[in-house]
């Protein structure tokens, strides 16, 4: 995307976003310094939380993964034993596999359906705000409620399957939660129901941010509407897609409430997820060491996916146009 206009870079009061302190110091002035100092003070809470909560606390938890801690944190070191056991635990392997299947499908389906819904809503339809509200309201529901409601609707003898069968379609089947092979897709439906409205809103906002001139130009060139959306508009919405991706990915890694409410991890261990593995082990299973080893493993994909993105988007110095 285009960088900020040149007139800003040339401005006297070099307060443009993206400038570093170094560049600010090239144009010294008392006000400037005071602002930097105030800004430093103002970001103290953030620094304290970032360092305190997400470095010290996470580090502490990682340390616990090398211990034999049971109900309470204790520093009786046992090396990598917990990790060895972890990767020999069927339930953990199933959890990891589930997270990848669920995660990829959840993100892709939410992005696609969110985009499609946004495009359809962008056609100057009547009752747009009504539709928007309907698509978005599930996001106000907690995941526990989402899980309970969908569990009920997917119940074979009470739910949708029963109703459709009674209507005369005897062979109709919609009870994914009772089949270990497809139970995870039942969870997926509920998760998409809850979250795709938010993606729709983000995408819609993104569409509304596209310059009208683009549309004019594409019409002049005789490019069809759907081609314009797919090949011109979509690539321009990269920031929206990235924001949606982050929000969805956070939900994938943390998915716990939904599983507990909808399937309890079953049938068997078919819908277990890493977060549930961690939480079960640090609570009812009284094995904090193993739980923290699992938690540490969960941080790796987060680091692998998020790390480079954070670095590129926020840490590395910006290119000047």
């Amino acid at each position: 995307m285009e960088e900020k206009g040149a007139q800003i870079n040339d401005s006297e009061l070099n307060s443009e976003v993206g400038k570093t302190v170094e560049s600010a110091e090239k144009k010294p002035g008392r006000k400037r310094k005071r602002i930097s100092f105030s800004a430093l003070i103002a970001s103290m809470p953030m620094m304290l939380v970032a360092v305190g909560l997400f470095v010290i606390c996470v580090g502490y938890s990682i340390l616990l993964s090398f211990t034999k801690s049971r109900s309470f944190p204790r520093f009786n070191w046992i090396g990598l034993d917990q990790y060895e056991r972890l990767w020999n635990t069927e339930r953990w392997l199933v959890s990891v596999e589930n997270m990848f299947i669920y995660g990829v499908l959840f993100v892709v389906i939410c992005l696609v359906s969110g985009f499609v819904m946004a495009v359809f809503l962008d056609q100057k339809v009547r009752f747009e705000s009504g539709f928007r509200t309907l698509f978005l309201y599930p996001y106000a529901m907690s995941l526990v409620v989402t899980g309970l409601v969908w569990q009920w609707m997917m119940e074979p003898s009470l739910g949708i399957q029963n109703v459709i069968q009674k209507l005369g379609w005897a062979g109709f089947e919609f009870a994914p939660l009772v089949d270990p092979e497809i139970a995870i897709y039942g969870v997926l439906v509920a998760a998409v129901w809850q979250a795709s409205g938010l993606v729709m809103v983000l995408m819609l906002a993104g569409l509304r941010g596209i310059d009208m001139d683009i549309w004019k130009a594409s019409r002049v060139d005789g490019i069809s509407t759907w081609r314009t959306y797919l090949f011109i508009i979509l690539p321009m919405m990269r920031p929206v897609i990235v924001t949606s991706l982050v929000l969805l990915a956070v939900g994938v890694v943390r998915v716990y409430d939904l599983i507990v409410a909808q399937t309890g991890g079953g049938p068997g261990i078919a819908t277990e997820m890493p977060a549930k593995f961690v939480i079960d082990h640090i609570t009812v299973r009284n094995n904090v060491g193993l739980g923290m080893a699992a938690a540490t493993m969960m941080l790796l994909p987060v680091l692998a996916v998020i790390g480079p993105w954070i670095y590129r988007e926020y840490v590395s110095p910006r290119k000047r146009s």
């Binding site: 074979p156 003898s157 009870a175 939660l177 009772v178 089949d179 139970a183 399937t263 079953g266 049938p267």
Partner: peptide, 8 residues
């Protein structure tokens, strides 16, 4: 000897 709706 059980029915299909047992899980959960």
């Amino acid at each position: 000897h059980i029915d299909g709706g047992a899980p959960g």
